[in-house]
Simulated scan of single mutants.
Amino acid sequence: MTTAPRLRRDAQANVEKLRAAAIAVFSRRGLSAPLEDIAREAGVSIGTLYNRIGSREDLIDAVVPDIAGAKLRTLRERTLAQDTPRAQLETFIAEMIDLQRSDPAMNDAMLRRYPDAVLLINACERSMALGAELVANAHTAGVLAEDFTTDDLMTVLWMAGMASHDPGAPDGWRRVVDRSVSAAWTARA
C-alpha cells in the first residue's frame, strides 16, 4: 500500500484555506455556490481549487463533517431525548425542516442535489434511517396511521425543503406541511 505524498506547506495551507472558504460559502449560499467564489474567498485561483481538491463533490465531501456532522448529531440527540414515539417523530420533522430552512447547504444535502458526493449521501442516509426507525416505532406504538410510510416522511421533508428556498412558494407551505403531518396521527395519539 502506498501513501500519498505529503503536500508542501504552502499547498497544505491552500487546502485549509479552501476548506474554510467552502464551509463559509456553502453555509451562506448552499452547495451550488460558484466554485470561483470559494476560490476567491480562499485567496487562491480556481485552478488551485481543482488541482488541490478536485470536483465540487470532492469539495463537498471534504467539508461534510463541518457542515452537517454536528447539526445531524444534535438533531438525533434532540429527537431521541423525547419520551414518546410521537414526540420523537414530531421533533425529527420539525428540526429537519428548521435545518432545511436555516441552512442552504443542509437543504441541498437533504434534497440530495449532489448524489456523487459520497460522504454527503452517507450522512443523509443515516438521517433517513433514523426517520424510518421513528416511523416504525410510531406504527408499533399505534399512534401513526399505518398508511403513513417512510416515503411519506421523505415527501413531507422534500416539500418543505423545496418550498423553504423558493421565493415563489406560497406563504402557506408550512401550514400545509404541518396539516399533512397532523392528519397522520391516529385517534390513540
Score class of each variant (00 low, 15 high):
Asp61Gly: 05
Val25Gly: 13
Ser27Glu: 13
Arg126Thr: 09
Pro85Ile: 03
Leu7Ser: 12
Leu59Gly: 04
Ala117Ile: 00
Thr2Gln: 12
Ala4Leu: 10
Ile60Leu: 01
Asp108Val: 03
Ile46Arg: 14
Gln12Phe: 15
Ala123Arg: 05
Glu57Thr: 14
Asn122Tyr: 09
Glu95Val: 10
Ile38Pro: 09
Leu75Gln: 02
Arg73Phe: 00
Glu16Met: 13
Thr140Asn: 06
Ile23Leu: 13
Arg19Lys: 14
Thr3Ala: 15
Thr2Val: 09
Arg40Gln: 13
Ala62Tyr: 02
Pro104Val: 00
Asn107Asp: 05
Arg8Gly: 10
Ala20His: 05
Arg52Gly: 00
Ala81Asp: 14
Ser102Ile: 06
Asp83Tyr: 01
Gly43Ile: 03
Asn122Ile: 01
Arg112Tyr: 08
Ile93Asn: 09
Ala24His: 11
Arg76His: 12
Ile38Gln: 11
Gly47Trp: 14
Ile46Met: 06
Arg113Met: 09
Ala11Leu: 11
Asn14Cys: 10
Asp10Cys: 08
Phe92Ile: 01
Gln82Trp: 02
Asp98Ile: 11
Ala62Glu: 11
Thr84Val: 04
Cys124Glu: 07
Leu59Phe: 01
Ala94Gly: 14
Val135Arg: 05
Glu77Cys: 02
Glu90Pro: 07
Leu89Asp: 06
Glu125Gln: 12
Tyr114Ile: 09
